[in-house]
Amino acid sequence: MSNVKQKVRAEEAEHPIAPYLRMDRIPHIWCPTCGIGTVVKCYATALEEAEVDLDKTAIISGIGCTGRVAGYMKLDAFHTTHGRAIPFGTGLKLGRPELNVTVFSGDGDLVGIGGNHFIHAARRNIDLLVILVNNFIYAMTGGQNAPTTPLVARSSTMPFGNYEAPFNIPNLAKCCGATYVARWTCLHIRRVTKAFREALGKKGFRVIEVITPCATLYSRLNKLGTGLDLMKFYHDEADICHGADTRDVEIDFQSRIVCGKFVDEEKPTFSERREEHYRNKLGDDFVGMPSEGGWLHE
């Protein structure tokens, strides 16, 4: 009897992530053993734990595998053009300052085609949480070389191995002025969730890089097995080193991945700096952007 009851309960039960997702779009498009779904689960959990007002939270993605995240999150969600998630998010944040804006996109999108926006948003310290999912490859388009592909790793446009130096993303973010910089792999579910939760409670340009397996392309082209094999690799090769010098955290092909929180500092954001500056210069003549948006109402 109790077994029957439990069975009924199991079939009717909905996954706890359901309130955060557009369940009418699930199952998602990601391949078996892709790690993006895990990062999404961590983000949803962090939203819950940080008690963020979901009605005031917007998520923006660019293009690519991770570019699909915005489409699955039950938030105000924008699936934009390739590389433009950060400037789009800049517009949203400045247009309605009370929004919490998360940019959730991939490595190719954010530091490849969108690299210029990334460095300038960091320089200005725009108040954005940037979740950068790094699978070392352009996966959606078929495994082409990415600005993060480690040296000698194969990609479909580097069939004899990559000879371009990759970006060290934490170092790039730090040098450009990001206020929170961390790196984890998607095996580190608790720590990724904690990093998201912590970063959701902070201000400024916050970058969290999450290394995820791409079994279909990166792993296949490099004969690394399935996503599960890569997860085991992360287990063996990820070193946690909080506060590491970001110059030392570059990633080589199938070698040590330094994880941890590298930067966590307070700096005035673009809007804070702007407001303070204009108050000094203009005094009472200064009128700030209303938190609910520019002039709209009668």
Binding site: P87, T90, G91, L92, L94, G95, R96, H117
Partner: peptide, 14 residues
């Protein structure tokens, strides 16, 4: 970036 920011900000009602 300018045009992307404008499209983004337009979705705030501004």
């Amino acid at each position: 970036g300018s045009m992307a920011a404008v499209v983004g900000a337009a979705w705030t009602g501004t």
